[in-house]
Design a protein around this nucleic acid. Sequence first.
DNA 1: GCAAAAGTGTTGCCCATACACCCATGC
DNA 2: GCATGGGTGTATGGGCAACACTTTTGC
Lengths: 227, 227
Amino acid sequence: MTVDLVIFTVRQDELQVLLIERGNEPYRRCAALPGGFVRDGETLDEAALRELREETALDGRKLHLEQLHAYSDPERDPRGRIITVAYLALGPDLPLPVAGTDAAAARWMPVSTALGGGMPLAFDHAAILRDGLERARWQLEHTTVAAAFCPEPFTVGDLRRIYEAVWGFKLDPSNFRRKVTRTEGFLEPTGERRFPEVGRPAALYRRGVASLLIPPLLRSSEFPVGR
Amino acid sequence: MTVDLVIFTVRQDELQVLLIERGNEPYRRCAALPGGFVRDGETLDEAALRELREETALDGRKLHLEQLHAYSDPERDPRGRIITVAYLALGPDLPLPVAGTDAAAARWMPVSTALGGGMPLAFDHAAILRDGLERARWQLEHTTVAAAFCPEPFTVGDLRRIYEAVWGFKLDPSNFRRKVTRTEGFLEPTGERRFPEVGRPAALYRRGVASLLIPPLLRSSEFPVGR
DNA sequence: GCAAAAGTGTTGCCCATACACCCATGC
DNA sequence: GCATGGGTGTATGGGCAACACTTTTGC
């Protein structure tokens, strides 16, 4: 019984996933999701938090963490029958992680690259990553977790760039602002402003108390990035 | 490692769940969700299908079956560390199930009764049932699984009564009809009609090929059952 | 005819989109 | 002034709730 982690962040306006290079067989030197065995007396949630800390030196209490799915194909691990429960973690642009015990190296990689096929992932981790991506996109529609990607305080523009990176297309800035500010409890104004290198300063916000978006922020009207 | 099944059906315009009376310790004579241990070489999906067949004599191929969540509290089972993966199954009003090996008896029970607290469920099955109910309600909004509750062929009124039973409130018949008939691929007309004991005959449909509802059939406008 | 359920038409409202436009800043 | 992103106003259109209305049956 193991847990595996799909850890997403947005860096340079791009959705990235944390991958390790495996130090042990099987799939030695192959890219993989961080993860490890569940210990006695641990819940799966606790195991996921521990792996997050051990393998990546990230503080799980500052991240959004949720269970994704259990993967159980008897052939999924050549060592034998290992069932894994995948977790989805979302966090702001984080310091470069340190390599853990089992990992020769850990690094951020654009999701598009990781799924591009140029460098296959160990085990069934490509399928897990795809499921995690779909779940993250869905979560942005229906919950306020997008704010978990933003270091506080943040601007409406910061939040919009999160949506654009995860969904993969541009949004109308004015309509986006209306939607997120209309939703009670999504954004909590700080009263401060941020002065960018160029352009008008933007109001700064913290995460509000709401966790569900009602109504949802639909991604139906997809217009391509280069509109 | 076990699987547990939340099996829903709609009988007498009411959402019901299949419960067994446990024949063995722990929680002997207590109501519980059907389930059992995963065998070597089995995926979790296969184990869920097998338990469905063994404990309830239902044919899983005719049901909607999906993974719900993994429950891992070390204290959840007094026998020791047992992690369970819960599955959600939805089916039309089914023949009364037969008791299986581990079950002294199996019976349908209204979900409201099972969660009412008058008769506590074994282990953490009440929490699993609540999660299953919430998932089923969500699925009706966003997918066409409601049709899985209807024996074919069925009428728009049959389908509406499914929604009313699962969501717990009445829907406007005319607007409901417009929504489900507008959604391409939800209903496939058979050309036949059903003549009820009273009232105008209704057109009969089969399940269409669509599985996602776009746009979703929102349950936002909840007006109480006794409007 | 009457009751009951199926099915259609219509109206008004809300809200999202699209886009024009103004604002505040650095250079 | 100009470029740049932040932020506001607004017209248009589509969808949905509400409900009046018609249709088709059994009795």
